[in-house]
Amino acid sequence: MIGAITLLLGCHLLGELFIAATGLPLPGPVVGMVILFTGLMTRGGVPDSVAQVSDTLLRNLSLLFVPAGVGVMLHLSLIEKEWLGVTAALIGSSAITVIFTALLMVGLKKLSHLGAND
């Protein structure tokens, strides 16, 4: 269990260090996930200990939204003043996400059909 947590946190740290060294405009944890994913793909699967720790973290993921909820409640008056901008940002970002996901799925579907014909 400790080894799996160390692996997850180590990948996170490597991602943060990579971003700090290169200055790329990416979140360190995202780069850490790419490092973890690459390592797991190279290994050929997810070890049971890593799967168990990951499942536990995912089951408790909702706890990470508590600080954000407190922040919203704390600054509710500011959100009330800027409701139009907040609403536009939420709708716009959601629309962009849906459009990008749809385009990505269409592209991947075409790519998988090209690979199947080879």
Rank of each mutant, 00 (worst) to 15 (best):
N117L: 15
G28Q: 01
S93A: 06
A95T: 13
L90D: 01
M33F: 12
F37T: 15
G44W: 08
L7A: 04
K81L: 10
S77K: 14
I35S: 00
P25M: 03
L104Q: 06
G69S: 08
K81E: 11
P27Q: 11
F37A: 15
G69I: 04
A21M: 15
G45V: 03
G85F: 00
G92S: 05
L78G: 08
N60K: 07
L64Y: 09
V66N: 05
L78C: 09
L7E: 05
G115E: 11
D48V: 07
M41E: 10
L14K: 02
E82V: 06
G44P: 06
M105N: 07
L74K: 08
R59G: 04
V106M: 08
E16H: 09
N117V: 13
A89G: 02
I79V: 14
A21H: 11
L13P: 00
M73S: 14
C11H: 00
L108C: 09
G28K: 01
L103P: 01
S54A: 13
L74E: 10
E16L: 08
G23A: 03
V98Y: 08
L108V: 09
S94E: 10
G115D: 07
S54G: 06
S93Q: 08
I19G: 01
L76F: 15
V50M: 05
G107W: 00
V31E: 00
T56R: 13
I96L: 13
V66R: 04
V31G: 01
L108Q: 12
H75L: 11
F37S: 15
L104V: 03
A20D: 10
P27S: 11
G69F: 08
A21K: 13
L36I: 03
V86N: 03
I96M: 10
S49A: 12
I79D: 04
L26R: 07
L13R: 03
R43V: 06
I5L: 15
V70N: 02
G115H: 12
R59N: 12
N117M: 15
S77F: 15
G69E: 04
N117D: 14
G32F: 00
S77Q: 15
A20N: 07
T6W: 07
A89S: 09
T97C: 06
C11P: 00
D55K: 12
T101E: 10
P47T: 03
K81C: 02
L103G: 10
G44A: 03
A4Q: 01
M105C: 07
T87Y: 05
L36C: 04
A89W: 06
E82Y: 13
A95C: 11
T56Y: 14
A88M: 12
T101I: 10
G28M: 01
A102I: 14
V34Q: 02
F18V: 13
P27V: 04
T97H: 03
Q52A: 14
A4L: 05
E16R: 05
